[in-house]
């Protein structure tokens, strides 16, 4: 059962590449693998915790105010992550900048809260939060690897190709757009190929 959930979160319902949620932080923080991984882990933490809490209190929230309630829960956990990062990972916090508090408006978290956590028990919601977060982290890492190698000729801070002058555009704004276009097109193409061979 866990394997199916993992497959669902990372491959078939990957929040970034298939559901196309959470674009803003992805493009901004995938400039290096460290940043991308850090952001992904932060989102996974917030997603898992908020899914559990929302699932626990789901019966007690009246329908009309559920969105503000979800936002309050999510904002609490995001503030927690903010403060933890400032103390223990200040370098990462500086790199991610404004996008750490912006996790609160990450469409993935609110979307999963609305679509899953408000309708399922806490254990299932926890698993869903973790696998979706892992899927998001995985796609962020793919983007980061491409952008870091092409854009600054490093991987995890280590020099990659000898004698290669990096294309700086890849770690800037346009590079983010081009990279995600290529990765999304590739994912689509592979998905269509699978559908054709299955049908």
């Amino acid at each position: 059962m866990l394997k199916e959930e993992l497959k669902r979160g990372i491959i078939t319902e990957n929040p970034l590449l298939i559901l196309v949620l959470g674009l803003c932080p992805s493009l901004a923080t995938s400039t290096s693998v460290q940043n991308g991984f850090g952001m992904g882990m932060a989102v996974t933490f917030v997603l898992a915790c908020s899914n559990v809490i929302i699932s626990i209190v789901r019966k007690g929230i009246p329908g009309k105010v559920r969105i503000p309630c979800f936002i309050v829960v999510i904002a609490t956990f995001v503030t927690m992550v903010q403060l933890l990062m400032k103390s223990y990972l200040p370098a990462l916090d500086k790199q991610l900048g404004i996008f750490v508090p912006l996790i609160v408006v990450n469409c993935i978290i609110l979307g999963r809260a609305e679509a899953y956590a408000s309708k399922n028990n806490p254990l299932k919601s926890l698993i869903d939060g973790i696998v979706m977060g892992l899927g998001f982290t995985a796609s962020l890492c793919i983007l980061s690897i491409i952008r870091e190698i092409l854009g600054s000729n490093k991987l995890l801070g280590l020099n990659f190709f000898p004698g290669y002058d990096p294309m700086t555009v890849f770690i800037l704004a346009p590079g983010g757009f081009f990279t995600i276009a290529a990765v999304m097109a590739l994912v689509r193409y592979l998905g269509n190929r699978r559908k054709d061979t299955k049908a």
Binding site: L172, A173, P174, G176, F177, F178, A181, A182, A185, R188
Partner: peptide
């Protein structure tokens, strides 16, 4: 091209626009 229809081509367009705004 079929694989680029919809979002990917929109991203490439945005990338070119970002390049010019750079």
């Amino acid at each position: 091209p079929k694989g680029l229809e919809g979002l990917p081509i929109a991203f490439i367009t945005a990338g070119l626009m970002a390049l010019s705004f750079l």
